[in-house]
Amino acid sequence: MTNITRRNVFFTGLAASALPLLAPSVLRAQSAILDQADAAAAAAEDTIRRNISSFKTQDWRDHFETLGVASIVCDTKSRALHYWNHDGTDYRMYPTTVPMTDDLTRLGYTEIVRKKVGPTWTPTPSMRERDPNLPDMLPAGGENPLGTHAMYLTWPAYLIHGTYDTRKIGRRSSSGCIGLYNEKIAELFEITPIGTQVRLV
Rank of each mutant, 00 (worst) to 15 (best):
Y83P: 03
A16N: 03
D103H: 15
G68C: 07
R172A: 11
T166M: 05
R92V: 07
T196K: 00
K168M: 12
M137G: 09
R7W: 12
P95M: 05
H161T: 02
A40D: 12
E183G: 00
V117I: 15
T2E: 08
D136S: 13
L19D: 00
D131M: 09
P145C: 12
T122Q: 04
G141A: 02
T110M: 07
Y94F: 12
T57H: 11
E65R: 09
D38H: 15
K56N: 11
I178T: 06
S17R: 03
E129L: 03
V69F: 05
T12K: 09
R199H: 14
I178G: 01
I33F: 02
M100P: 01
L138H: 04
T120K: 09
R171S: 08
V198R: 03
I112K: 01
N8D: 11
A42M: 08
Q30F: 10
A186Q: 11
T66A: 09
L153C: 04
L81N: 01
M1A: 15
H63C: 00
Y83M: 08
G195S: 10
V26W: 10
P156L: 06
T66P: 04
D136R: 13
G195C: 07
L67Y: 03
T105R: 10
G162Y: 01
F189P: 01
D46K: 14
Y94R: 01
M137T: 14
Q197K: 13
R199Y: 13
T122E: 05
E190M: 08
E183V: 05
L188W: 00
E65G: 13
L104I: 06
A150M: 00
P193F: 09
S53M: 08
R49F: 11
D46R: 11
L146E: 04
A41I: 12
A150N: 01
L134Y: 04
F64P: 01
G108W: 01
G141H: 04
G147F: 11
I191A: 02
A29Y: 09
A29C: 01
S175C: 03
G179D: 06
C177A: 07
D59G: 00
D62L: 06
L146D: 04
T124C: 14
T76L: 12
V9N: 06
I72D: 01
A44P: 00
K184A: 10
E111M: 05
Q58G: 05
S175L: 09
R130V: 07
N51G: 10
L67P: 01
I48H: 06
V73P: 03
T97L: 09
N8Q: 10
D131F: 10
N182M: 08
K56V: 14
P123N: 11
K77Y: 15
L180Q: 02
